[in-house]
Structure formats: C-alpha cells, structure tokens
Design a protein around this nucleic acid. Structure first.
Length: 298
DNA sequence: ATACCGACCTGTCAGC
DNA sequence: TGCTGACAGGTCGGTA
C-alpha cells in the first residue's frame, strides 16, 4: 500500500502526536506473520521506553526509543512473556549503557496501518499489536494481509539504498550504470533507491518520457538526469498532498491524501494521455501492473 | 548477476 | 443474491 510519500505522511502524523510519550505496556496478537523479531523481544524492548523520535527510512517507519529504567513497567498485559532468567540476561547489555536506545521498525507492507486512538475505541479486525501509552492513548498496528513487518534493533537501522530526496544527481544516475534490468525494476529495487513503489515508479517514468521496460543501460545520462528530477518532483508533490489514497489508505489522523487526483498514468488504462490523447497502456512487468503512454514514453 | 514466477494473506469488486 | 476469478500500493526466495 504505502510508498514513500504515504509513509512520510504517516510518520509526520505520528511524530506530531506521540513523540515524547512513553510505552507502558504492549499486547501482541497470536498471528506470527508480521513479526520479524520474537514477540517476546518486541514486548521487552518496547515496554518502558520513551518515544524519542519517529523517522522514515525508505518505506520503513523507525521509532527511536530511549530506554528509561525508572519508567519500566512492573507488569504488562502482554500475552507473550519470557522466562524471568532470560529476560534479565537479554536486557543487560542495553541497560548497562548510559544513553541506551532501541529501534522499533515497522514496515506497512500493502495494507498495514498505525493508528493512535483512545483505549475504548473498537479494536479493528486484524489488529496485531497494541502499545499502551503513558498519556492514556494507544498505538495500534492493523494489517489484514499481514505483509507488514515489525522488528526491533539494538543498533541503528539501515535498509540499504539511497533516499531519493537526499541523494545527488551524480550518485542517482550512477546507480543505473550498466544494468540490463528494465528501468522500472531498477526503480522498484529498494537496495538501489528506497521508497519508490509501483505508483510513483509509473508516474516518474511518465514524466521522464521513459518506457517501463527500457533497459537501464540503454538510457542516456541526460535522460537519467531527467528521471532524477521526475522522481523527486513526483515524490515532493505527493508528500505535499498527503500521499495517494486508493481504497482505504489513510494517515495517522485518519485523513486521506489527495495525490491520486494527480495520477497521470497509474490506474488510467485505456484513458487518454493528458498530454497527447493516446490511450494509456497497461502491461505486466515482473508481476506488477505498469502504466505508460506509448507515444510520450520511448 | 538477472528475470521471471509463485508465495505470502485477506478483501473488494466486476461479471456472470 | 451468491459464486468465481482477477486484482491490489510490497517483498522474498527459488529457479533457470
């Protein structure tokens, strides 16, 4: 579901609402699919920490948690608990340092949502984690398809790839040098550029006038420079509009984004190109729908 | 290395 | 109304 602009919108919403709050207890559901760390480890890491910051790394949401001994919950309503001995052993290295931080990383997959709500709010189907906050509110992770991922890390989290909005043109252009893969596949490769997904790849390629199937190695430097600008322009515009809402995607405040109104090719198969009136074509490229104008894109 | 495919899951919607 | 199949914003692992 969410690509970079949606995740950025969600992160800003969350940061505004819960930075500075403390996680007092954590409940985790019985479905293990979204968990990339042990449930017990997630509970143990989150409980008692203060949310120092929330940032985005590609499509990942990273919670920076300050470990605060005095606020450590004396008990929790978590379903999963570790034996006392192991719990103490595992905590020792983190608590021994003066400024201990942990990182909670959330990837929303296709249908994941993070919502902040009052505890009496109805618990949605497919709720996999509930973090109770010292302010009295709850942070909940909901994900019907369970493609989302939750993990905790003691060290700084680095998903690889470059941030398209931070990288310079030279570095961006060089990422594609000599690659025979279709340019769209390269754009979707999170180890190269992080944060670009199916919608924004199609929209960026349209603005740059490049067909999704073009081999990256056959694209001129000038065209790649154009693509660099297109990717950044599309992402910035989408962030400014709060992301693309298709079906049920909403940000942390429950507000919809509006970038879907700006889509020029995505989801417009058969409709006229806004530039030249040629019908937009849809093809399947490595299993993903790809939309382009056969006249404007070469 | 790279490309293609199915798998992972549930929900929705169009068509019959 | 209800069934079936296609499709969905993301990744991962296997295979050729």
């Amino acid at each position: 579901m969410p690509e970079l602009p949606e995740v950025e919108t969600i992160v800003r919403g969350l940061a505004r609402r819960i930075v500075g709050d403390t996680i007092t207890s954590v409940w985790i559901g019985s479905r293990p699919q979204p968990l990339r760390s042990l449930a017990s480890e997630i509970v143990r890491t989150l409980e008692g920490t203060r949310i120092q910051g929330i940032r985005r790394a590609g499509k990942h949401i990273v919670f920076e948690l300050a470990i605060n001994n005095t606020a450590k919950a004396t008990h929790s309503n978590a379903k999963v608990k570790l034996p006392r001995k192991r719990k103490q052993d595992a905590l020792a290295p983190l608590e021994s340092s003066a400024n201990a931080f942990a990182h909670w990383v959330v990837h929303l997959g296709m249908t994941g949502r993070l919502v902040v709500c009052e505890p009496e709010a109805e618990i949605a189907k497919h709720t996999h984690l509930i973090a109770t906050l010292a302010s009295g509110r709850e942070l909940r992770f909901i994900d019907p398809r369970m493609f989302g991922k939750l993990s905790v890390h003691a060290a700084a989290f680095d998903p690889g790839g470059v941030e398209p909005l931070d990288v310079d043109e030279e570095t961006f252009v060089n990422l594609f040098h000599g690659r025979k893969t279709p340019i769209k596949s390269a754009l979707l490769n999170q180890k190269l550029v992080r944060g670009v997904g199916n919608i924004y790849a199609d929209e960026s390629l349209f603005r740059a006038g490049i067909r999704p199937r073009r081999r990256a190695s056959t694209i001129t430097r000038a065209q790649l420079a154009k693509l660099y600008e297109s990717v950044r322009e599309v992402l910035r515009e989408a962030i400014a509009l709060g992301g693309s809402s298709i079906s049920d995607y909403v940000d942390a405040d429950g507000e919809e984004g509006f970038f879907q109104l700006q889509h020029r090719v995505y989801g417009r198969e058969g409709e006229k190109c806004l530039v030249c009136k040629t019908p937009i074509r849809r093809v399947v490229l490595s299993g993903r729908s790809s939309h382009y104008c056969p006249n404007c894109q070469k």
